[in-house]
Amino acid sequence: MNGVLSRALARAPAAAALLAAVTITWAALPTAGAKPGIRVALVVAVACAVASLAHLAVGDADIGGDAFDPLLVRLVAQAVHIIRALPWSEAMIIAVLTLEALHHSRPWHTGVLGVALLAYLFAAHLAQTRTRLGALRPQLPVLAAGLGLLILAVGAAALPRLHAGTASELLRGLAVIAAVIAGALALPTTRRRKSAGGS
């Protein structure tokens, strides 16, 4: 009915599909030198990505599948029901992060993967709700803060190690988590103060 709007809304599923492919490829490569189990994680990630994209494509459309429908239609309806029932998108995120964790430490690579995963989540959300990109504007400041923390975390991970050992690694990890939580707690407080001052 509205061609321009339809085209704009059709871009979100395409973007989600592209980002899913990019994240899986980015997390899987290089396969050589990775820990065992990478193939299983890769297969799971691809399967989940395909299912989640199928979910986006099918949407809420009525497929049918009544008792009087042909067998093929009932099978398709059953498959669609399974696709809609299970959290494929979430499973894909876990599989992709597992793929990345099965490789040796490469902080900048993981940081890029994090950004791509976040972009995939937003693209999938826009496709699912058939919303324009402008609807995400209120989240931009928080997203910018989150990306800042991500860069800090990647930078901290990329610093040369002072003392080799499990304790120092754990300490560094905990420090970054603490920074993230502190940032998360500080953000709403600042907003509340601003709004209180404004009123």
Partner: peptide, 14 residues
């Protein structure tokens, strides 16, 4: 024990 993964979680946590 890899802090970069906590960084990946940061935007979502915020």
């Amino acid at each position: 024990g890899r802090p970069e993964f906590a960084g990946v979680a940061a935007p979502a946590v915020l």
